[in-house]
Design a protein around this nucleic acid. Structure first.
Lengths: 338, 338
DNA sequence: GTTAGCACTCGACGAACGAGAGTGCTAACA
DNA sequence: TGTTAGCACTCTCGTTCGTCGAGTGCTAAC
């Protein structure tokens, strides 16, 4: 083995192969490259180079008389090249977001949907778990027919609500007094503490124990939900648009794998670099072997970080996806960071 | 044509064919029926009967040497028979619901998910549009860092909220005073009126016009959403479990058709009988030609009716689906009716 | 180092064919 | 008159075989 390096020309050829394959999903032959990309070289020359690249593990042949297909290693080289450069945030994506800024918790959902819609891939957003959430405000809003909406707001701005039954006698002023009392007593406490305190009260208190029970239940639910990373998925069946998944069994396996969110969470929660790209088997999720997962992190306050990602076939226009992700993570960071 | 009727034996045979076909999705031969169902008759006899049934339009042959497949007309006869009898509400389904009674608006979502999970088909819930919604209460809940959660509750118990920015000077008492004032002025008004009134105020009022604008925007959004029937879909990719959709193109067409909710809405909103079954082309949604849609209505108050439905291949265990739907509509009616 | 030429390989596609499933028809039977 | 056995017939499915074409690797010439 005299020459082990990937020289500039090999790199150009490899890039051409990748770009052609991303477009067509068909093995790329030497003639195609010679015609469409490296017009100054003949197909024979390209063949020699391709042969070298195959030996180095960057290309593979589905069978001997087919063209070449880029390997995971090739995508990796290509993507690393992209990540070296500046990732430019996609302006279209940013504009898309700007229109529908709704600073409630469901920005994450909106972001996932926007990303899935624009990239035509599957998008995921991971919101990290938040331990030790402290109650900031607690309010009962009157509703018709002896009901009330119980709202809990935490110091991080998380909101959760539920409808509870209350005595018909309580009018809106009474509910406000109760709210104020409860907020005074409970503000600054963790959800855990709130549950404990209310458990104690509820056993003593007679008539309006229902309210306290409702609060305890909501606090419990809120604590449970916030104690684990949550993953939001959008555009899951975009995958059906790609020939890689023209087999229903594969598509089903993919969709089922998406439902089991643990692995996805794991992948998304170890996110140090601004962008990460997991290609093929690197992702360690079976049923997603020929997928790539491109992710970007964003701050959500208190030093925690969430992540947003796009899942599609390894054959993916990484540059576009990266810039869309850049825009999404930027906007999410602005909305959800401190 | 001497005898035009479907006598009892023909009916039994037809039923056997349908039930076998529902299980296997394979054309049913005369031998199968003679062996598994009508053991006292020979296959030749069954063949004669099947031939008659085919002539009457109840059966079809994919090709001459295959077994028979029930036609839409056959399903129709079968289903009409079922609908004559009592539809027993599925106890498992009911129990499932009882566990997670959450009387907020997302019961509809929960119902759809439960139904999709238990039937393994696609489930839809339609909530009818509500015109002339009147505000019952309006409340600002303090949030950290100069924000507030604005909650609007209507006389029907519908809730919508959004986060708005407010002056940092406003503490929870101030917000309550504003809430009380606003509720006094606006309670009983329609969402339309609220928007008009606030538009007028906001132009005059200086500093806290933001709050009024926020309310007007939320009222507008709420009015827009409630002015049209909304459809909630769950388990859309359950369809991939059935051989009818082993072709990716078909599956994709189906999923795309689901996204366009107008036709679905139309189908679900004309719901007079307690149960309705649309089979095949009856449903008039292309891309769902070999589907059946089974629906049940439920009351949502004010004389309006919502509907819950299950969409799957025509080959469907109608009895089970009907009883699951019965349970779902019963529970939804109890939670959402007056 | 590059290129033209050529033999070779392998998958896709279509035709031919046998096996198997299921039918319709006829004739015999109760 | 209704039921059944028997049989010829039809059609699909899977297999095999041969052809076509795309694309390669190798060699020799530039």
């Amino acid at each position: 083995m005299r020459e082990a390096g990937v020289d500039a020309r090999k790199k150009r050829i490899l890039q051409a192969i990748i770009e052609d394959y991303v477009l067509t999903a068909l093995p790329v032959g030497s003639r195609t490259i010679s015609r469409k990309y490296e017009t100054s070289l003949s197909s024979a020359t390209i063949r020699n180079e391709m042969s070298d690249l195959e030996e180095m593990g960057y290309l593979a042949q589905p069978h001997v008389s087919a063209g070449r297909v880029p390997s995971h290693k090739a995508y990796r080289l290509y993507v690393d090249g992209l990540l070296q450069g500046e990732v430019r945030a996609d302006e279209e994506m940013k504009a898309f977001f700007a229109d529908q800024l709704r600073p409630t918790e469901d920005v994450a959902t909106a972001a996932a949907q926007a990303l899935a819609g624009l990239t035509r891939y599957t998008a995921v957003v991971m919101m990290p778990k938040q331990l030790e959430l402290r109650v900031s405000c607690l309010q009962l809003v009157p509703m018709p027919r002896g009901a009330a909406l119980l709202v809990i707001v935490t110091d991080t701005g998380a909101i959760r609500d539920t409808v509870i039954r209350v005595s018909e006698r309580l009018d809106s002023d009474a509910l406000f007094s109760i709210s104020r009392l409860l907020t005074e007593r409970l503000a600054g406490r963790t959800l855990q503490e709130v549950q404990e305190m209310l458990g104690a009260y509820a056993r003593m208190n007679g008539p309006d124990a229902r309210v306290l029970e409702g609060i305890a239940a909501l606090a419990a639910q809120m604590e449970k939900q916030s104690a684990q990373d949550t993953v939001i998925i959008a555009g899951s069946h975009n995958i059906l648009n790609y020939p890689e998944y023209s087999d229903v069994e594969k598509a089903r396996a993919f969709l089922t794998a998406l439902e089991e969110k643990e692995k996805l969470t794991h992948l998304l929660s170890h996110h140090d670099a601004p962008f990460m790209v997991h290609i093929g088997s690197e992702s360690a999720i079976s049923d997603m072997q020929d997928c790539a997962i491109v992710t970007a992190g964003f701050p959500v306050g208190r030093g925690h970080r969430g992540a947003v990602g796009v899942i599609g076939p390894s054959r993916m226009p990484y540059e576009k996806v990266l810039s869309a992700l850049g825009a999404a993570s930027h906007v999410l960071g602005e909305l959800l960071g401190e």
